[in-house]
């Protein structure tokens, strides 16, 4: 049987990523081990020294770092990722409800950011040096410059407290509704699948502000790279030749030139994943969004070891996955790269 070359390429990349991630897990665990306050003391401030030692023994906190790391890795392969002292659940269980919340927020945010950033970048490149270019440039620099936490707070104040045009910023769904049960964990989609359009609409409205604030951080990098890459590809001979053949400008810009600019754009999109997931920590804190980011922040400030290492490991893994997807997408964008992978 012949394995397709792209598959071999992917398998090799996955193997390398796994090795890197083991390294990441070690660093992440060591960091969480170094966190200062004692999880036992912070949870039960009033216990005696003997009780505390007893509890530490039960939790395995008296073991050397290497043993604790080995135990943690064992739990990673078991799939429960250790136990959170804060929630009392396994981290796996905690994350199962928080990951969809963050994913839903992140996807809406990225989609908004890309939908806003791409046209801005394309307009900037096509009307390079004109007032349109300058307006786009200032807009995306502004989007990049407004701190997410302040913007979130300010928007909540004006749009909720003052104007009442958005629902109260208390997480994924107003308490008037019961959360939809479904397979995706995305409230909007689960509710639609269950035929509850009112719930889907409520969940969507709840998403609007946080997704906007999170997505604003995506606008600027996408717009910048699009402008730069489109400027380059618009200078290519095949665009001039297309014009010489009398092909429509719209087709040449949005079809031919954009295709040529896609590789750097997709690469940037890969980098953005890490930014968005880190940015989610802030946006989720501001909007009381019960997701991964807020979970990580709480775990860090309460020295909850297993969740801290797991969150770091998880985000690093998603960055690795994003980069792999980016590399694979190259093959679909550019037939020349498809050739290279095949060799």
């Amino acid at each position: 049987m012949r394995i397709p070359p792209l598959t071999i390429y992917i398998l090799r990349r996955v193997a390398i990523s796994l090795v890197v991630l083991v390294g990441v897990s070690a660093i992440a665990f060591a960091m969480s081990y170094l966190l200062p306050s004692d999880p036992v003391t912070s949870r039960y401030p009033d216990i005696t020294n003997e009780q505390r030692e007893e509890m530490r023994r039960q939790m395995g906190l008296d073991q050397p770092l290497v043993v604790q790391y080995a135990r943690y890795m064992e739990s990673v392969f078991r799939g429960d990722f250790g136990k959170s002292f804060g929630t009392g659940n396994t981290v796996g269980l905690d994350l199962a409800i928080r990951i969809p919340a963050t994913l839903e927020l992140a996807i809406f945010g990225i989609v908004f950011g890309v939908l806003a950033g791409l046209p801005m970048g394309i307009l900037g490149a096509v009307y390079r040096g004109s007032w349109i270019d300058h307006v786009m440039r200032v807009t995306n620099l502004l989007a990049q410059s407004i701190p997410a936490f302040w913007l979130g707070v300010t928007l909540i104040f004006w749009l909720y407290f003052q104007l009442r045009v958005v629902p109260s910023p208390i997480g994924r769904l107003s308490p008037m509704f019961t959360a939809p049960v479904g397979n995706t964990g995305f409230y909007t989609i689960d509710a639609m699948l269950a035929g509850r359009w009112d719930v889907a609409w409520a969940a969507f409205r709840q998403l609007l502000l946080p997704a906007f604030v999170l997505g604003l951080g995506v606008v600027s990098p996408i717009a910048r790279i699009t402008r730069a890459a489109m400027s380059d590809s618009l200078k290519e001979d095949y665009i001039t030749f297309g014009r010489a053949l009398g092909l429509k400008s719209r087709q040449l810009i949005l079809g031919d030139a954009f295709r040529g600019a896609m590789i750097p754009i997709v690469t940037t999109l890969g980098f953005i994943v890490a930014n968005v997931l880190a940015g989610a920590a802030i946006v989720e804190t501001v909007f009381a969004w019960p997701g991964l980011g807020r979970y990580a922040v709480t775990a860090i400030t309460t020295s909850d070891m297993a969740p801290v290492s797991t969150c770091i490991l998880l985000i690093a893994s998603s960055v690795a996955v994003a980069n792999l997807l980016v590399d694979i997408s190259y093959a679909f964008i550019d037939p020349r790269i498809r050739n290279e992978y095949a060799q």
């Binding site: 290519e236 001979d237 095949y238 001039t240 030749f241 297309g242 014009r243 010489a244 053949l245 009398g246 092909l247 031919d256 295709r259 040529g260 964008i333 550019d334 037939p335 020349r336």
Partner: peptide, 29 residues
């Protein structure tokens, strides 16, 4: 250009869209 002037370039490979099959490029003109 659409009333009967056309061009050929020095760098023919660069003048063809690298992401499109050559048949399709002729076809769309």
């Amino acid at each position: 250009l659409s009333r009967g002037v056309s061009l050929l370039f020095q760098n023919a490979k660069g003048a063809l869209n690298p992401f499109m099959r050559v048949g399709a490029q002729v076809e769309r003109v």
